[in-house]
């Protein structure tokens, strides 16, 4: 264990370098560069607010903040898991030649997306200012569900990265799952529309539901996350990490034969 940590410590420079590379490559030749991390969710939010406040009316106070807070977290989940899924495959030329701890690649993707999430939080603050949402002290507690979600995403990413090596189908299937999850999470609609449907029960099995509602509580309602919600979020995070890491661990010696 100590040894593993020493290896990780030795390769931390690789981790930071890969994150730096991703940032540079993502915003290469774009005039606004990293500003897009803020601008993109902002514009998306504008489009969706326009659509949903005109055509489908939901009775949600402060819709822009409601929408954006849910969407930022979900986008993070989508981005990090999808990027992590292909990360080991994408690094095949490297893995075939040099010994590098392989979990670095999915881990790097979730770190990179997490960093992006923090940048995008600027957009949320901006919208909160514009809409005159009151700022609560609990806003700072919002990092708790964010961090737990990061753990969850890392676990999912490790699992997907390993699975995609043996079965490329996973890559196609995952987009369907993400879409399903995005509708099963109250992002653009209020939780109340679940009433009287099976979603009342099923919706609570969706991990994303817990992260999003807990985060929203901190941002909009000014309440600190409850023990239950922190407990559930932690449970999903740890479960994902344990499953993801052990699947990755058990299969990683065979990666090289399939990539």
């Amino acid at each position: 264990m100590k040894n593993r940590f020493a290896t990780f410590w030795r390769y931390r420079f690789l981790l930071s370098n890969l994150i730096g590379r991703d940032i540079k490559v993502k915003y290469r030749r774009s005039k606004l560069g990293i500003l897009w991390s803020v601008l993109n969710p902002l514009l998306m939010m504008l489009v969706m607010t326009a659509v949903f406040s005109k055509f489908f009316r939901f009775d949600i106070p402060n819709y822009p903040v409601y929408l954006l807070s849910g969407q930022l977290l979900f986008t993070f989940f989508n981005e990090s898991s999808t990027a992590a899924m292909g990360s080991v495959l994408f690094s095949a030329p490297l893995i075939k030649k040099v010994y590098v701890p392989k979990y670095i690649f999915p881990l790097e993707k979730s770190c990179f997306s997490f960093l992006n999430l923090f940048f995008s939080m600027i957009a949320l603050m901006f919208v909160m200012l514009i809409t005159r949402t009151s700022f609560h002290l609990s806003l700072f507690a919002g990092v708790i569900p964010m961090f737990l979600l990061f753990m969850f995403c890392t676990g999912v990413g490790l699992f997907l990265a390993a699975a995609a090596i043996f079965f490329r189908d996973v890559m196609h299937f995952w987009t369907v799952i993400v879409t399903a999850l995005s509708y099963a999470t109250p992002i653009f609609y209020p939780e109340s529309i679940w009433q009287g449907t099976f979603m009342v029960y099923l919706g609570r099995l969706n991990p994303l539901y817990w992260y999003v509602t807990s985060f929203r509580g901190c941002v909009i309602d000014g309440v600190f996350p409850s023990v239950v919600s922190i407990g559930v979020c932690t449970f999903f995070a740890v479960a994902a990490l344990v499953v993801g890491a052990s699947v990755f661990w058990k299969t990683q010696d065979n990666f090289i034969l399939y990539i």
Partner: peptide, 14 residues
């Protein structure tokens, strides 16, 4: 940038 990246791949520190 590549010199640093490649060094990191080989496990060298910054």
């Amino acid at each position: 940038e590549n010199i640093y990246l490649n060094g990191a791949v080989l496990g060298f520190s910054k």
